[in-house]
Design a binder for these strands. Sequence first.
DNA 1: TGACATACATAGGACATCTAGGTATACTAT
DNA 2: ATAGTATACCTAGATGTCCTATGTATGTCA
Lengths: 106, 106
Amino acid sequence: MAKKEMGSTSMLVLALLKEKEMYGYQIIEELDRRSEHVFQMKEGTLYPVLHGLEKDRLIAAREAETVKGRVRRYYAVTEKGLRVLEEKKKEWNTFSKAVTAILAGA
Amino acid sequence: MAKKEMGSTSMLVLALLKEKEMYGYQIIEELDRRSEHVFQMKEGTLYPVLHGLEKDRLIAAREAETVKGRVRRYYAVTEKGLRVLEEKKKEWNTFSKAVTAILAGA
DNA sequence: TGACATACATAGGACATCTAGGTATACTAT
DNA sequence: ATAGTATACCTAGATGTCCTATGTATGTCA
C-alpha cells in the first residue's frame, strides 16, 4: 500500500544484528525479551528470512562451535545491510506516522 | 509474529468510517489525503476488504444515487465494527511500541 | 529413560496485498 | 463528435510474508 507494506521482520533482524552478531535462536530470544513478549517469532519464519538476507548479502554468516561440539551460525550485518536498515527505518517512521494521523480522528 | 502482523488496512478503513460514512472511492482519496500520499491504496485491495468487512458485519452498506444517476455504495461502521476497531488500535499501539523499542538500539 | 531446551532446517498452507484487467457513466479538451 | 481522463464499481491470478507442522540432532535434568 505504501511501498511494500513493511516486511518488518527483516528490519528488526537487521536492527538487532547491528548491535552485535547473533545466531538464529538467539535472535528469537532477544526479540522476545526486548519487545516484552510482543514479538514471538517462529523458527519457521526466521530461518528462511535469514537465508534470504544472506543471499542478498545484507548479512554474512560465520560458523562457530560451542565447547560441547554444537554448531551455531553467527550472523553479522554487512555495509549493504546497514544501508538497507536505514532505508527501512525511514519507511517505518513514515508509515507509523501516517497510521497515527489516520487514527487520530478515531 | 505478533497476532497477525497487523492487517492495517481494515483498521484504517474502520477508523475513517467511524467519522462518517463513505463510499469506496472516497476512502481511497481520504487515505491518500490524510496520510499525505503515504497510503495509496489500490482498488484491487480496497474492494475485497470492504466486502470482507461487510460479510463480517463490521460495516454496513447503503446504496445511494447521485443526481446524475451514478450509484454509490456508502459504508458505515457497526457496533461490532467499533469494538473491533478498538482492539486493533490497542494491537497497533503494542506493536509499534515494540518496534520502537527494538529500533532504539540501532 | 523420558521430558524439555537448544539449534538448525524445510514443506505446505493461510492470508494480505498487488497487478492487471473489465464494466460503465460523466466531464473536458480537441 | 470523440478521445482522454476522472469517477465508481468489480474480480482473477500472482506474489510475498508469515505460520503450522515436522524433522534432525545434541545437551541437561529429574
